[in-house]
């Protein structure tokens, strides 16, 4: 699991994840992900290259979303793969971790 952070506006960053967000993957990104979440008001987590997610990976995302929400910001999931999205739906978190499909939708969701 790799992670790359890119600023996309004054109050938003893109956190691109790549690989399996399983136990090992979550352990690898937990600290840098929390640092990234603390660095901007809004977070767009690019999930397009995440090939697998387990409950521990969802936990990492939810804790980040809770942190962002406390500051009045939003954490969005960008374009997750079908298998990953199905796991998120099964857990029932897609209302709490909104999914966006493109940059325009992401920026609109942040500004709404």
């Amino acid at each position: 699991m790799d992670m790359q952070v890119t600023p996309i506006s004054q109050d938003a960053i893109r956190v691109a994840l790549n690989g399996r967000l399983d136990i090992a993957g979550s352990a690898k990104i937990d600290v840098p992900f929390n640092v990234a979440v603390g660095a901007s008001r809004n977070i767009i987590v690019d999930m397009s290259d995440v090939t697998f997610i387990a409950s521990i990976g969802i936990r990492t995302l939810v804790i980040g979303a809770k942190t962002v929400q406390r500051r009045g910001g939003k954490l969005l999931l960008f374009s997750p793969q079908a298998d990953v999205e199905q796991v998120l739906e099964t857990i029932g978190v897609t209302d709490l971790l909104p999914i966006v499909r493109d940059e325009a939708e992401a920026m609109a969701a942040i500004q709404s």
């Binding site: 409950s55 969802i58 936990r59 939810v62 804790i63 979303a65 809770k66 929400q69 857990i91 709490l96």
Partner: peptide, 9 residues
């Protein structure tokens, strides 16, 4: 999100 306790999934 506010009341959600992550885990148990």
């Amino acid at each position: 999100l506010k009341t959600m306790q992550p885990g148990g999934w």
